Amino acid sequence: MNLAHLSAEAATHGLFVMAECPDPESNSTIVLIGANATFWGIFTTSPEYQNNVPNPVDTWSKRIITRLADGRPTVYPSDGPPYAPFIQWALGSDQFFQSPVGMMVHQKAGLMISIRGAVKLTQPYAAPTLSAPSPCVTCVENACLTACPVGALGQDTAYDVPACKAYLNSADGIDCMTQGCAVRRACPVSQRFDRPAAQSAYHMSVFV
């Protein structure tokens, strides 16, 4: 299996190759697989979703990505403890960056990041000759910095989880609960990624 084949197969399941990075434990490549804009429509027809199995997104992701890997090692964010260093892997690639609000931002998905798993390929990691800068570098408005209605996310501040959840559980939080996190939606790259509101609402319900 090569990367092109993995990418093509992933696309048929609403997934895409988000990034590649070197495996620090071996001379090989870690491929991070994430959900794209077509994921929700495909996932909601799956037996995991239709039959209300526990942790349906994780269960579906493991079934599909294990099949895509075709015998190669796979790793999932839900595996653990100990948990695999997905954030370290992502930031070690040329596609993920730290955003002004602290969350990772992706070149294509913006702040709408949903890493579903990783496949370890045996071929050595080939670093890109040219890497694009973070999309935040060219962002003029920096709308993410002021988008949170309760200031739970902002520049140079720790994520105030209690304030976020209290707002989401209030009558005022209905917009974030049904449309998705206002900060994530404010990112211009997120808007171009066009993730369905129903998917964001699902993730918000699980978070709360």
Rank of each mutant, 00 (worst) to 15 (best):
A118Q: 08
A118R: 08
T122K: 13
R184A: 15
C148A: 11
V161Y: 03
V189A: 06
S93D: 01
Y167M: 08
T146R: 14
C136E: 11
M103H: 04
Q95P: 00
K165Y: 01
A90F: 00
L91P: 01
Q179N: 14
P133V: 03
A143P: 00
A118D: 04
G173D: 11
Q179R: 14
P73W: 03
Q88V: 09
V75Q: 09
Q88W: 01
C136T: 09
K108E: 15
Q107Y: 03
A166I: 10
S93A: 06
P133H: 01
I115M: 12
P128G: 09
G154V: 08
S134F: 12
D94G: 07
S134R: 10
T129N: 14
K165D: 01
M103D: 02
A171Y: 00
A182L: 15
G151H: 03
C148R: 06
L153H: 05
M103C: 04
F97S: 07
D156Q: 14
D94H: 14
R184K: 15
Y83M: 09
A163Q: 06
C148D: 06
V161C: 02
G154C: 07
P149S: 07
A152W: 03
C139Q: 05
S114W: 11
S93N: 04
F86P: 04
V161A: 10
F96N: 14
C144W: 03
T157H: 04
L91T: 13
L153G: 10
C144T: 07
A132F: 07
D172G: 12
Q98V: 09
T146L: 03
A147W: 07
T146S: 15
P149D: 06
W89V: 03
P149L: 12
P100G: 01
G117C: 08
L145S: 12
T74A: 06
V183W: 02
R185W: 10
V137C: 04
E141D: 15
A126H: 04
A118V: 02
V140G: 01
D175W: 08
V183A: 12
P149V: 12
P82K: 10
T129C: 11
Y83Q: 12
P133K: 07
A147D: 09
A109C: 14
L121E: 02
G180M: 10
G151Y: 02
N169F: 00
I113S: 05
T74F: 02
C139E: 02
P77F: 09
P135D: 08
P135S: 05
A90W: 00
L153P: 03
K165A: 04
G117N: 05
N142K: 15
T178Y: 00
S170I: 13
D156P: 00
D175F: 13
H106Q: 05
S78E: 14
P135G: 06
T74D: 03
P82L: 10
M112W: 12
D172F: 02
L130Y: 11
A147V: 06
P100S: 05
A126E: 14
S134T: 11
M177N: 15
A132L: 15
F86C: 06
R184V: 14
V140I: 13
C181K: 13
G151W: 02
D175T: 15
D156A: 13
S170M: 13
V137P: 01
N169H: 05
L121F: 12
C136R: 09
K165H: 07
Q88G: 15
P124F: 05
V75G: 00
G102Y: 02
L168K: 13
Q179T: 14
P149C: 11
D172E: 15
P81N: 08
A163I: 01
G180H: 10
